[in-house]
Amino acid sequence: MMQSRTVETTVGVFIALGLAAIVVLAMKVSNMSTLGSDDGYQVSANFDNIGGLKVRSPVKMAGVLVGRVSEVSFDDETYEAVAVMTIDAKYVKIPEDTTANIYTAGLLGEQYISLDAGGAEDYLQEGSMIEITQSAVVLEQVIGQVLFDKASGDDEE
């Protein structure tokens, strides 16, 4: 009887350890602790080109993570990309005329949406739409532009 109690106890310890490891992975290693994804309100924005933006890409203001992209789709009437982002519920005072830009973290890093606050009195709410947007910079286009400018500049001389 004694023996089976020891077995049961050690199995209990084992299961507790395993669950604790999962909790560590959830809280300490992954982003579970930093952002509850469903907790917030949704705002959409139209872009000419979203580049490499994906669902769960970060949304930042002044470099601070305020939300994540929750949906990316294509509007076949305006031929624009629609990005829906979920903004964390604690940031409720974002002006309505805020602009949304798609930037790249570092030269080759992932792309994210950066929000720049405007000056309006009203704030963004659930279902609001950000009017002023700037699309992602596509590296090939930039390089192409530079080469083209250079070539046309040479011609003029």
Partner: peptide
């Protein structure tokens, strides 16, 4: 070490898939 890790590892995408 921890903050970059937390920013990059996704619970549903990475941890759950591993499980």
């Amino acid at each position: 070490f921890w903050s970059q890790m937390q920013a990059a590892v996704d619970f549903n995408g990475d941890v759950m898939n591993g499980i």
